[in-house]
Amino acid sequence: MRTMLQSEEQTLEDIYRPRPATVVRVEDMTRTEKLFELELDSGEPLGHMPGQFVEVSLAGIGEAPISISSSPTRGRRFELVVRRVGSLTRALHHLKPGDKVGIRGPFGTWFPVDTDLRGRDVIFICGGIGLVPVRSAIQYVVDNRTDYGHVFILFGARTPADRLFTDEYEQWCSPGEVTFLETVDKRDARWTGAEGVITTLIPCIRFDPARTVAVICGPPVMYRFVIVGLKERGMAEENIFVSLERRMKCGVGKCGHCQINHIYVCQKGPVFRLSEITDLEEAL
């Protein structure tokens, strides 16, 4: 400890200083979500893994943690899908191609695409914008298709108008061995698909719990029910991964806002193996 304090060297990087990035493309997704394709001005790739997040910054407004929704296999640009929900995201929604943002990160843990998921069947279970970070893993799996077994994608949206990435489902399924099921909480006049909460999709798939890994991401209320549904089908907590939202203000394990009990989510999360957090009272 004394070494760093007594050091005359003051060359350490500033952990709070964002890197400039440029908006390359903006796409409207729903009434409240937009997709932004970004590129770091340095030309470097972001260097992330699926499931990690960045702190997005607009000078004068502030920063917010946003999960990365594209896979590192898709080149040096990266994509964020942003729901308009607070002051920063409201401002982000006004950005056009050519505009600048600040980026810190990538931060946090990732879906174990190169370890636990590899060689296994994979179930992705996503509610609403929970599909945003998971899409990064789906792309990663699609781009390395032979490394994985059967893939199940279960997606639940509030209404048909809230569905995300609708023009990509076909591509996700095209390599084969992919089961894509979706449902909406509340149908509209034109919806002919399933209606009901996401847990209703779990009994619809056939899988071997011994060689399957599940990834869950969605609104806070969703986790308990999905976990119960998976355990009823014989899934062990060791094979279930969850991505948890918290207020990750600093991203570097200092500011305290994202803590689940003793765990700084920005450091040990947002992706957790379920068996490692079941005794944490504040987790789920």
Binding site: G86, L88, T89, R246
Partner: peptide
């Protein structure tokens, strides 16, 4: 001018009601 300024930190407190609240209003504590 609204285009120059400073980013600063201020003390916060975990006893304050909105300490663990995220945008959109969900409060995790």
């Amino acid at each position: 001018s609204l285009d120059k300024g400073v980013r600063y930190r201020v003390w916060d407190g975990c006893l304050l009601e909105d300490f663990a609240m995220v945008a959109g209003g969900h409060n995790f504590r």
